[in-house]
Amino acid sequence: MTSTMTPNLQLTPDGRLRHLLTLDGLPKRILTEVLDTAQSFVSVGERDVKKVPLLRGKAVFNVFFENSTRTRTTFEIAAKRLSADVVNLNVNASSQSKGETLLDTVSNLSAMLADMFVVRHSAAGAAHLIAHHVAPHIHVINAGDGRSAHPTQGLLDMFTIRHYKGDFHNLRVAIVGDVLHSRVARSQIHALTTLGCPEVRVIAPRTLLPRDVSGMGVHVFNRLEEGLKDVDVVMMLRLQNERMQGARLPSAGEYYKHWGLTPEKLKYARPDAIVMHPGPMNRGVEIDSAVADGGQSVILPQVTYGIAVRMAVMSLVAGANP
């Protein structure tokens, strides 16, 4: 799958969002449309009746080949608030290692009259493959594929930044931690760049930086204190504990010492800087509890905004029919 093919697959011939697979190459117009629409859905969440009838009669299938609590739950809530019927499937990834089997699963679910697939898979490109395969009236949303992309997380992060900071054009944003294994970081970088953020910093140990990082238009820092200096937004990444066994890092304690965000380190950022984390957090590894639960943390609002952003994405793709 080349990235040049992706925008065509995601958009209808008249330029509307048909599938959401990656933020790489999506025009600013679409990102802004999602954020603006999400703003209207936030007000729906504040009412007694938190449902609107947009997707009444539609069947949304959450197909998760990889574990998730937060993402799957917020997609489920989002679909229900749009009045869709929701089916949740946790498919054991080990029995799904062949592409053919994945498409068979999708064909079977399509035969159950699915209108939309929300897909998480450990293999990069899984959602693209499904989007290629499905009938024209079916929409696909990528809920995380391998190390490649997690576009709704990137969008809800942008929504959160815009909510607290208003505009992207004067912001310094730092992304901190395990960038190498992070699909979230990739989506964040694409979205920030497209939305006009002038300075995106990546702060990570050399062993956790992707080789192509310099080509992504970011400033790389190898020391936390230096990278945090005067930033407006700190976006922490989860250190995947499973990687700790490898040679990339000495130990969780050692990582915390150099890369953990403590109240002392946060002082290098601007006093009104916000702290974000996509979850789940490793307290005492990449982030100190005093920061995670502190006054600058917007980690729980991120989760709440995630519902409105996913409602926006689902309703925009569902409304873009050929």
Partner: peptide, 8 residues
């Protein structure tokens, strides 16, 4: 589909 400029 959705109206272009939905307002809260």
């Amino acid at each position: 589909g959705l109206h272009a400029e939905v307002q809260p």
